[in-house]
Design a protein around this nucleic acid. Structure first.
Lengths: 326, 326
DNA sequence: CTCCATTTTGCATACGTATGCAAAAACGTT
DNA sequence: AACGTTTTTGCATACGTATGCAAAATGGAG
């Protein structure tokens, strides 16, 4: 039963051609006569032959593999991102070498793993890597793209939502509605997403002469729920709460509901991400929709072009008005 | 700048040894003198050398890669599964080639992709594959394990929660509580998980002389919400609702809340999976916790042993009593 | 220092594919 | 049929590593 793995040589023998010819049949753009192609394909099909991607990668210095490192898979936003990445990369002919990381900074080890497999590019989602590692990758001519993160000290491509502007627009909306008692619940403070959302939000309002209340969250439901609950218990009931992401906003929303505070009549709530859950009837959360598809397209684009000139792309997105705002 | 990729040969030259010696330094169990090892490691570190996994895989017929095909990444349960799989596989020295699929049956193409890369095993989560494909894989001596699915016509290893027994135990609990007006909201009917949960549940109750109401869901929040809402509107308010998974139960729960029906006083709700969301304060859903970690350990175990004798493992798990049951 | 046993090393080859080069085949023109 | 042109083919080699084998180096005992 121990059927040994069949190679181009085996096919060649049965088809009465050379191994080169077999190879050419499976190499697009190579010159093979129609007769040989037919013969080879027939035998290949019978033997169930498929070219070995490792050997091919070895000789072509091209593996068709992309490393995808992802953090914080708890946030539903990234599930959608993961799904879309794998699908779009597949369309482009790439396979995905997946790594899940718990640290804010991807570890050397993960990258080494990617390098050993000669990935053609690395996408890092919701995490960072040291500038030393980035330099090393660039020396090896491997593009690396940060998705939804960037850092001034890290010279590499990055794609994210224009968090500053988005938060600023949200602030504008809130301002126009006449709200003045405003709360922002942050995400993890060491993330550029949270910092930018906070900056865009507070700067706009400060410019209008409004100081807001900032609660230090961590992008988790639990923490946000707890913060909101405590705030209300301490007698502070704001007019509007803006959460650094949807999970945060939903945590606040649930806390308000639990305390029988009506939304949006007494307190408005706004999130960020537009995860699927936000459109569930029990939430109907007003939120900022990140242009996921566009962001992913651009990321893959940067990967494919691999230009020496590094870009920091920031895409817009749009506000979605649901039932947690008036 | 175009720094070319460095090979064992380069290291060998600088360290004044042969390529074989360099190779042996990076092959555990090979015989190298301490002196050479030191020399080689020093140079390797300077040059930033790491053995090429492709070349190694080619010659050793061992790639340290595992194919992971996953369906329905929308269900939060599978995010936890994905995270745990990648971590545990990494611990065992495997890299994960990830594929996301939308079809109930993994397509030939995905498998071919895995095969081209010489994966050492394939894990299929929440989906099936044709018995033809399985046979082909077995012929190539590649183990394939279904996670949370099985099928009588597919002769391959599988690991899942013992859904029949779990649902049966839940039925027992419900019966003991004295409930008689009972609703089960199914998942997708073509999944073994949903079928088994339905079977364990209904069989137990039928045996007690109780007929239950079955609503055909699809594991989605929206459908479950809608089904529950319609049922109540039609005047049927049961004593307890059992959802085929947590997302289903949460959909029902939210529908009940929206209609101001108190849980668990008027209606109890029970789910299945114990996803993170179920322990959110606003839900506190009573549910069945699948023994994820154990399931994953067993799956990896089967992968490693790759015995000719195929097993269908069913692990137990346990009931978690929260606030949606009395 | 000599001899033998053991360890370490290098050489050569293999893994399965792609590709430059030259030979062979096919084709078209006169 | 003879020639030149184009297409197709096979040969040989390369990619970067692991490993059997024999040669070389090391170590220990006398």
């Amino acid at each position: 039963m121990e059927k040994k793995v069949i190679s181009a040589k085996d096919v060649a023998k049965l088809a009465n051609v050379s191994q080169s010819t077999v190879s050419r049949v499976f190499t697009s753009g190579a010159s093979v006569s129609e007769k040989s192609r037919k013969k080879v394909l027939k035998v290949a099909d019978e033997l169930n032959y498929r070219p070995n991607a490792l050997a091919r990668g070895l000789i072509k210095q091209k593996t068709n593999m992309v490393g995808l490192a992802m953090k914080d898979i708890q946030n539903p936003f990234y599930h959608e991102v993961l799904g879309m990445f794998t699908q779009k990369l597949k369309e482009k002919g790439f396979s995905v070498l997946f790594v899940y990381t718990e640290n804010e900074e991807i570890e050397q080890e993960e990258i080494n793993n990617f390098l050993e497999y000669n990935v053609e590019g690395i996408i890092v989602t919701d995490a960072l890597l040291s500038s030393k590692v980035v330099t090393k990758l660039h020396n090896n001519n491997i593009p690396v793209i940060l998705f939804n993160r960037y850092h001034k000290d890290i010279n590499c491509d990055s794609v994210s939502c224009d968090n500053i502007n988005a938060a600023s627009e949200i602030a504008g909306y809130i301002y126009d509605e006449g709200y003045r008692d405003i709360v922002f619940i942050t995400g993890k403070s060491n993330t550029s997403t949270s910092r930018d959302r906070q900056k865009g939000f507070t700067d706009f309002l400060k410019h209008k002469g409004i100081d807001i209340t900032i609660l230090e969250g961590d992008y988790s439901y639990e923490e946000s729920y707890h913060l909101t609950e405590t705030m209300i218990e301490n007698g502070h009931q704001p007019e509007v709460i803006f959460g650094a992401n949807d999970v945060t906003a939903i945590g606040a929303l649930d806390a308000l509901k639990a305390m029988s505070i009506s939304v949006p009549e007494e307190v408005s709530v706004i999130g960020f991400d537009d995860i699927k859950m936000s459109s569930w009837p029990s939430y109907m959360l007003s939120t900022w929709a990140q242009p996921i598809e566009e962001m992913i397209n651009e990321t893959i684009n940067l990967l494919l072009t691999n230009s020496k000139h590094k870009e920091t792309l920031k895409l817009k997105g749009h506000f979605i008005h649901r039932n947690t705002t008036k």
